[in-house]
Design a protein around this nucleic acid. Sequence first.
DNA 1: GCATATTCAGATCAATCAAGTAGGAATTTA
DNA 2: TAAATTCCTACTTGATTGATCTGAATATGC
Lengths: 149, 149
Amino acid sequence: MFQVPTKTQYAIRALVHLVRTKSASVASIAEAEHIPFKYLEAIFGQLKSAGLLIADRGRSGGYRLARAPELILMSEVVKATEGDITPVGCLDDAGFCIVSEACLPRRFWFGLKRTVDAYLESVTLAEIAEPGFLPAPDPSQKESAAAKD
Amino acid sequence: MFQVPTKTQYAIRALVHLVRTKSASVASIAEAEHIPFKYLEAIFGQLKSAGLLIADRGRSGGYRLARAPELILMSEVVKATEGDITPVGCLDDAGFCIVSEACLPRRFWFGLKRTVDAYLESVTLAEIAEPGFLPAPDPSQKESAAAKD
DNA sequence: GCATATTCAGATCAATCAAGTAGGAATTTA
DNA sequence: TAAATTCCTACTTGATTGATCTGAATATGC
């Protein structure tokens, strides 16, 4: 369920690489990060379409970040490589459950989605590229606050 | 990445069903919840192995919860159907990164894992079975890492 | 200009995994 | 003893992941 596709892992490693080297070709990044060249090429196409990268074509071209890494949320990166996060079908708006009575688990899944989204939106690319980056707050947030679907 | 497998969705719906009807056969639950009979049979095998269900074999047998639903964490259910949550390979203990320098993204993924685990451990089966169940806290927990535009 | 280094675009392919099926054996009870 | 159940093992099928292949289009340096 939470196995992160290599595509997304590759994307993030390559982006971290780009935070340091202001600009680089796909080939150089692929070699440095041990990522299959052609695969990374395709991934960068997606990241560019998502507005995260800018491409300079031609002989001494390459890719560079479209924004300062402080302004790139990890949620954007994940969304670029994987599309929207919809844990279960019944969460699509206008979607509904075939299940008997009011689909109780729905709220549970929705809560999970919100939790994950919140985390991904709370971290920027710049923070990941910092050696001093510390992961999530220790989970002392155990409330069970409001709902609004 | 966060598409929840139908197997897990089925498991939870079936468990919620069992919270009400103290005991039931796979066939009856499958019909009531619109779950393929043979598939649910296999799922229940896993839930039993995980110690969440007790089976009564023979003619008027069936399944029942091994514990009160208040004592069944959703993390246990997910783990039973999907195994441990390891977002990326390098998180297994004794695992290490092939990546050049100290794998910075690793902490990011680890933080994600902790966030998800914390959520799943904060909800019990009993809460999901309650019509009044309210999902996750609104994400006002922005402590650790936040850089905004 | 021309060779070269790059991005870009599309099809294709193999391996893996999710989802579901199938058949039947073992077990208990009415 | 027959019916209803859990249990066990294997299979099929379709989608997805993780790539590869081929070949353009485009810009640069010489």
